[in-house]
Design a protein around this nucleic acid. Sequence first.
DNA 1: ACGGTTGATGTAATCGTTTACAAGTACCAT
DNA 2: ATGGTACTTGTAAACGATTACATCAACCGT
Lengths: 352, 352
Amino acid sequence: MTKRAPSIRDVAIAAGVSTATVSRTLSSPEVVSEKTRETVYRAISETGYRLNVMARNLRRRETGAIAVLLPNLGNPFFAKILSGIAEVMSAAGYNVLITDTTPTSPDDHRFPEYFSHNQTDGLIVLDGMLNRELLLNRGTPEVRAPMVFACEWIDEIERPKVTIDNRAASERAVSHLIELGHRRVGHVCGPPDNVLTVTRRQGTREALQAAGLPCRDDWFYAGDFSLQSGADAARRWCETPDRPTAVHCASDEMAMGFIGELHRRRVRVPEDVSVVGFDDLEITAHFIPPLTTIHQPRVEIGRAAARMLLERMRIPPQDRQRGPVPRLVLPVELVERLSTAPPPVDARQNAG
Amino acid sequence: MTKRAPSIRDVAIAAGVSTATVSRTLSSPEVVSEKTRETVYRAISETGYRLNVMARNLRRRETGAIAVLLPNLGNPFFAKILSGIAEVMSAAGYNVLITDTTPTSPDDHRFPEYFSHNQTDGLIVLDGMLNRELLLNRGTPEVRAPMVFACEWIDEIERPKVTIDNRAASERAVSHLIELGHRRVGHVCGPPDNVLTVTRRQGTREALQAAGLPCRDDWFYAGDFSLQSGADAARRWCETPDRPTAVHCASDEMAMGFIGELHRRRVRVPEDVSVVGFDDLEITAHFIPPLTTIHQPRVEIGRAAARMLLERMRIPPQDRQRGPVPRLVLPVELVERLSTAPPPVDARQNAG
DNA sequence: ACGGTTGATGTAATCGTTTACAAGTACCAT
DNA sequence: ATGGTACTTGTAAACGATTACATCAACCGT
């Protein structure tokens, strides 16, 4: 008894033409005569016809969707990137499938299945900690959907990517602290093995070394980008004898967790210690104190990654190996707000 | 020259059976003999076969995907809800399409097309401000994909929904302030016309009236759930003569924006004014001061909405009109942290 | 020995499009 | 009249699965 949705055949009958003509009216109107076109359009609105995307995609051997793999949907950092991706992708007629790669259960190995070659036309990977095999063993090269990295990446996998210069960014953050007069500068790191952790730590080191300042292991606090790990780092900072007067956190969330915990322990920012974050989340401007941080052009990162993927999807699979692998490095800038200030006077006296 | 991905036919040939048998081995293994099953499994791994979802869905007249419509991906409030939805939905074999309903450009009317009946098997709507017509004119009832509301909803549209008791929640928040001794209590509202705005404002009013306290229009500040609007409200609060000693904000983001701006103006929370938020975002526990707020079970809201939708999708379209429309109201609780305290002494003296 | 039941498999239609190819028409130059 | 273009349109074969129905073998009780 369930009536079916009208199909292209119903339109064809209503218009008195063949299904081929209807199809052509829709996908390449310029080849059908004006008169027929009108008739078909009328028939379409009469019947209330809507294209069945599944059928089209089956025939065209496409899926009409791309997938985005990200480590943590809960992190507001990704929201704007997703907007950028969605903006470009839906303009190009693609759906965007978002997949949080943190397994909900320990035995959650469904997602290699998920993004096997015939589920999506392309992949944007925002997670550099994914299993390499998983990413590579997605069917034979001929049928594998193209992939681009954004923000994070995996060194061993040569793929198009759009990133920022993390090393230079952290260098800039630390230089800022040094310019303010800080001589003892610490760093709260991201999760171990993460590329961002490595490059940002390196930038921090290089800035310190370039200024001839100490680069002490006990001033590099472990973390994992989360609020909680920032708070934990604050606890360890408090216990550090001879502790740094300024800290550069590898993410805004850690910076906020750090400052939050310090506040609970009656340590003031920036009076007692300066903090520079990384990312420039919306909330940081409203935080107490407003956070000095590295601004990332997140929407633009998303847009660029999407455009790059679109580009790659256009290249036939067998040619994709050839030619240079596109790279894009977007500029970042330091946003000075109120979480940084010259070091406290007593600390300045202590310094060499 | 591009080699094709192996199809069910290749497997059938390799196993020396018909495609029907292969299909059955995959979708209802119990009906094929053990011997054949083995052979087919072997053939599958030999050929590296992967099911083509598009083909299956076309044949089954499903899309294998559901869509989530939300007002703002950037709002961290939605992230956990999405996790909950994704958890249940992908366990059930569905993809989750996330759509931010804020138009990227003024003429962005692409999405009525987007969620027309044949694009998704179901809809979860987290945005109560959507155009009613848009939501209802999605093809004939027989082919329309089922829809459930979560968090927000539209009163005129009778659909399954999972919510919290917003009225009671705000009542609880305000009672807490009254118990602390506050006599002048304000409210920062959400966007006009939003159901959450209305119900939370109502809860606030009722708590005040029940306690015999004044309910003054100039203590109800306009807002739109955003950080910025919270900051704006703070500005107006400062200008209010005879202002409230406590404020209940209809969202955590507004509460944080409110407090941030107050801090900039040297007004202390909770010493000078108490603030209660709504939502219990992760960050609020790390905010300065940690925020007293209403906790929403966000993951569970997502899960429940997903389960409810799955349920509805099982019912044949023509029967969906019949029977009661399921409703689920999840419990919330007040989380007391440090942004609330008894009113300042001078204010207490002023009070009746 | 025979009809009936059960279980396993194959045959072929179907889902709703797209598109290579064929075919038809109109027009023009020869 | 003939053949050649240039346009339009139609015919029918894909795309890769699922599934109703038919078939067939094996087994059982009488």
